[in-house]
Design a binder for these strands. Structure first.
Lengths: 233, 233
DNA sequence: AGTATTTCTTAACTTAAGTGAACGAGTTCT
DNA sequence: AGAACTCGTTCACTTAAGTTAAGAAATACT
């Protein structure tokens, strides 16, 4: 178990929740930061995303901003630990987070969430201790909301409930397709597929984490990659 | 491709949708049929299930019943074909349905839905042609609803929207846990796990369908099973 | 800058899944 | 009843992933 805590001085939950409260407030510090690829602020990115589902009034947008849910999170930060109870959901505006289990002293990474992807850990839904860890693998900007907060705002604006329903249904459909694809293909096919569909992941994620994501050992992924290279030549 | 159509005289979509329209109406024919294990009617089973999420008034219950969505479906019926467009969702009151792909002339079964489980195929969400087949592997009683119908009733009773949201979120959480478990375990562990969690499936489902559900070939499942038997003795 | 740690690769060996084929038992069809 | 087909099992062989270990390359730490 030791190694989990050794690779870097882990900032714990308290670290990232207090961080936006420094000097400037969360909005000016985080929400106004511009994305590298274009000039949109984090707020713009969020509202553009939401606009695909429902159209918000200025009042509703302000309600969201006033929740103070924009957070800047450093690479390596653990957002959720195994055994912990939580009510927090995450939405990635910039960066990347991963979920992983620790089984037989080994980390098994099962999912990555990048720009415009949302994660509500199962433990939040079931209100039981978490079975896995969530951590940040790049300096990221996240929306962190808790279910009480959501219940309150959804009570005021039923529109949000509707949006959540549509998103949950879409995500469920996507998750099932991904699962089906995983079941019906070999490790090598899965890797080739990832190259097609999420080439960015292969660049930004360490290979030993990718390996468990593909359901194999790091050595096998390394071998598999060199096998593919041979075929090409 | 031939074999798909040869194992039995397939009843097509038209078959099952017209079936309840015979002699008696759908409600008396199907909804009043009692479950083997107890004396509850299909309607009772449905409303007990719904009661876990929201409480319905008599008016709302009547609205559901008057939709005429209870259907009796014969074993072997194909509910959805690859390439087909559809707006239909299924909820199993009794029996079992499966989803499968046809890849290289082989059926790959990826999921089973049994009593009190719901399936909205991804193609219904994305409004694109279906990538897989859905078929009935036992004589079953299903709720078959289409998205227009749902939109209409959800407009009248926002309560249903709320229920769907909760269900979708729960199902998403469950799907992710199942996927994670699949990724982090070997075929043998998956089989042992299935024995624990859904022993009924192993009884009621043919092994070659179980095999692809476990991500392996039928021969491997057979071998794996005898390996387990040896260990026990 | 130098050391320690982590990450990736390679290799030899073991184990298990994929493949192709054959067989018997049970179904379904005619 | 006989033919055709499905289904599960077994076997021999191939292929690929798991395991263990070692070393090189990259990264982080002081």
């Amino acid at each position: 178990m030791k190694f989990i805590f050794t690779h870097k001085p882990l900032s714990w939950l308290t670290d990232y929740t207090t961080q936006p409260a420094t000097a400037q407030n969360a909005e000016t510090l985080v929400a106004s930061v511009t994305n590298d690829s274009n000039n949109k602020t984090m707020k713009d990115l969020l509202f553009d995303f939401i606009a695909k589902y429902v159209s918000l009034t200025e009042e509703e947008k302000n309600a969201i901003v006033s929740l103070d849910i924009f957070h800047s999170v450093k690479k390596g930060t653990t957002l959720l630990k195994e055994g912990q109870q939580s009510k927090e959901s995450y939405f990635v505006l910039k960066g990347c987070i991963r979920t992983y289990y620790v089984i037989d002293e080994e980390e098994k990474t099962t999912a990555f969430y990048t720009e415009m992807e949302a994660l509500t850990p199962p433990c939040v839904i079931s209100q039981t201790p978490s079975e896995y860890y969530v951590s940040c693998i790049e300096d990221s900007i996240l929306l962190v909301s808790n279910s009480d907060m959501e219940a309150e705002i959804n009570g005021k604006f039923p529109k949000f409930d509707k949006m959540c329903k549509i998103m949950a249904e879409e995500l469920l459909a996507k998750e099932r397709m991904d699962f089906d694809e995983f079941k019906t293909s070999s490790p090598e096919q899965r890797y080739q597929n990832l190259l097609q569909k999420r080439p960015d992941l292969i660049q930004r994620v360490p290979q030993h984490q990718l390996a468990s994501y593909l359901g194999i050992k790091p050595q096998s992924l390394s071998r598999l990659r060199s096998r593919i290279l041979e075929k090409k030549s």
